[in-house]
C-alpha cells in the first residue's frame, strides 16, 4: 500500500533520515519506534508532504507522492495526526473536523455532507459532536482525540498516527491503543503508528520498525524486537 524506498532528509547538512526503506501492507498496523531524535516524526512529515525528501521515493498505492503538497496527499487518502496536537482554536471543535472532512475528503460535495462525516468521526473517538463546543477547555487527552477525529474525517485508507499517546496516563494509553485497533478492524484503515512508549504499542501492532539516528536497525514482529540485541542497546537500554 505504501512503499518507502531509500528516503533521506537532511537539514543544513544534518542527516535526520538516512536512506530508510520499508513497506506497509494493506490492513496492517505497523509500529515505528525509536528514541527521541531518531527520525520517526521526520519520516512522517516526509510521507505526509509536510517536508520534501532530499532523496528517495515514496509510493502510495502505486503512485509517487514524494514532494507533493500535503493537501494533495491528504486528498489521495493518506491522513496524519501531529505528535503535539495542533487544533485550530478560533474554530469550534466540530468546525475543526468539518474542515478536514470538506477539504481533505474525496467526493464531499456539500457542507452538510462534510458535517455528517465530522459528526461520525467525533462520535467514533468519543468527543462531543455539537456545533458549540470550543477548543479552549479541552484536556490533553481530548486534544489528541481531536487530532484523530480530524484525520478520520477525511476518510483515509492509510492513517499516520504520530506519537498519539505521549502525555497520557496508563489507562488513557490503553484506551487509545484499543481505539487504533478498532479503527483498523471496523473501518479497514491501514495504520502506521509512531510511538516511543514501546509496551502499549507492542500489544497492538503486527510489525515493528525500529529507528536510531535516522537509520533502520530492525524490522520484524514485535516478539523478535524485544529479543534483538541492537534494539535493546539503542532503545530499551537507554530507557531503563
Amino acid at each position: 500500500m505504501l512503499s518507502v524506498k531509500g528516503v533521506s532528509k537532511s537539514f543544513d547538512g544534518f542527516l535526520a533520515v538516512n536512506r530508510v526503506s520499508f513497506d506497509v501492507a494493506s490492513g496492517e498496523i505497523l509500529g515505528l519506534i525509536g528514541p527521541n531524535g531518531s527520525g520517526k516524526s521526520t519520516i512522517f512529515n516526509l510521507i505526509a508532504g509536510t517536508l520534501r525528501p532530499s532523496g528517495g521515493s515514496i509510493a502510495f498505492e502505486g503512485r509517487e507522492i514524494a514532494g507533493l503538497p500535503a493537501h494533495r496527499i491528504c486528498r489521495m487518502g493518506l491522513a496524519r495526526t501531529f505528535q503535539i496536537p495542533r487544533p485550530f482554536r478560533r474554530l469550534a471543535l466540530r468546525e475543526n473536523v468539518t474542515l478536514a472532512a470538506f477539504y481533505g475528503g474525496r467526493d464531499v460535495g456539500s457542507r452538510a455532507e462534510a458535517e455528517a462525516h465530522a459528526v461520525a468521526a467525533l462520535d467514533l473517538v468519543g468527543l462531543p459532536n455539537d456545533p458549540h463546543t470550543m477548543i479552549d477547555g479541552l484536556g490533553a487527552a481530548q486534544l489528541k482525540k481531536l487530532e484523530l477525529a480530524r484525520a478520520l474525517a477525511t476518510r483515509p485508507r492509510l492513517l499516520l498516527a504520530d506519537e498519539s499517546l505521549g502525555g497520557l496516563d496508563h489507562a488513557e494509553m490503553e484506551r487509545a491503543a484499543d481505539m487504533l485497533g478498532r479503527i483498523r478492524r471496523d473501518l479497514g484503515i491501514t495504520i502506521v503508528w509512531v510511538e516511543h512508549i514501546m509496551g502499549v504499542l507492542m500489544r497492538v501492532v503486527d510489525r515493528v520498525i525500529v529507528l536510531d539516528h535516522g537509520e533502520t536497525i530492525f524490522q520484524g514482529v514485535p516478539r523478535d524486537a524485544a529479543n534483538d540485541a541492537r534494539v535493546a542497546e539503542v532503545y530499551l537500554g537507554r530507557s531503563h
Binding site: 500535503a70 491528504c74 495542533r86 485550530f88 478536514a100 477539504y103
Partner: peptide
Amino acid sequence: SIAEDEDAAESAGV
C-alpha cells in the same frame, strides 16, 4: 485554519 497554522491546515487537506 491557515491563519493559525498553515502546516496543520495543509495536512487537513486545505
